[in-house]
Amino acid sequence: MDTDVPKVWLTREQVAQRLQIPVKTVAEWGRAGYGPPYALIGRHCRYPLDRLIDWEQALLNHQSQAVATEPGPYLRIAETTVTTNDD
């Protein structure tokens, strides 16, 4: 038996409640490739709790190391380019 199989699965509504965001936002993330990992079980979208917690932690770690260009639970990183004029 595979011990890596998550034991707790959350619905999209439960994820939205946990993150305190609209359900529509979680759904849009899935379509856009953002947000926590999920699986389709039949036609039902389910989020393994252990992977959701890992995603939350990675997001928090990433935010502490980068500057967000816009607010929100997902992160877009502002890249800074330094140029020099060595004429």
Rank of each mutant, 00 (worst) to 15 (best):
I41A: 09
G30S: 13
L10R: 00
L40A: 09
P22K: 15
P22Y: 06
P48N: 04
P6K: 04
V67I: 13
P36D: 03
L75D: 00
Q63E: 14
D4E: 09
N61T: 06
I53R: 07
I77Q: 14
R76S: 13
G72K: 07
W29L: 05
P73F: 06
G72L: 04
V5R: 12
P22A: 14
R51S: 03
D87M: 08
K24N: 12
V5G: 08
L59M: 15
E13D: 11
R46N: 07
I21M: 09
P71D: 07
V67P: 01
N61M: 10
C45K: 13
V5K: 13
T11L: 00
W55Y: 11
N61V: 05
K7Y: 10
D2G: 03
R43G: 10
I77G: 03
D4R: 13
G33A: 09
P22E: 15
P37C: 02
K24E: 12
T81G: 08
A27L: 09
V82R: 11
V5W: 02
G33S: 07
I53P: 01
L19F: 13
V23A: 08
V82P: 02
R76Q: 11
A78T: 14
P48I: 05
A58L: 10
M1C: 11
Q20Y: 03
R51T: 01
Q57G: 04
R46Q: 09
T84D: 11
T69I: 06
P22Q: 14
Y47S: 02
T11A: 04
T69Q: 12
R51L: 06
L75N: 07
T81H: 15
P22C: 05
Y47Q: 00
I53L: 13
P71N: 07
A39N: 03
L75S: 05
T11F: 00
A27F: 01
A16I: 01
A68D: 11
P37M: 06
L59N: 04
D2C: 09
V15F: 02
V8D: 08
Q65R: 12
A32N: 14
L59P: 00
V67Y: 08
Q14C: 02
L40S: 10
S64E: 11
N85G: 14
T69N: 09
G42T: 07
R51M: 09
I77P: 02
G30Y: 02
G35L: 07
N61S: 10
A68G: 07
L19N: 04
K7T: 10
T69S: 09
A58W: 05
Y38R: 05
L49V: 01
W9E: 02
P73V: 07
P73N: 10
A58H: 12
T84M: 13
R18K: 15
Y74H: 13
E28D: 14
Q57Y: 03
D4F: 15
E56T: 09
P36K: 01
L60C: 08
P71C: 03
W9V: 00
A68W: 01
A27M: 07
V5N: 10
E13H: 04
S64V: 04
G35F: 02
R51N: 05
Q65C: 04
I21L: 06
W9R: 04
G30N: 12
L59Q: 11
I77D: 07
H44W: 06
Q20H: 11
T69M: 11
D2T: 06
W55C: 01
V23L: 07
P36R: 01
Q14R: 04
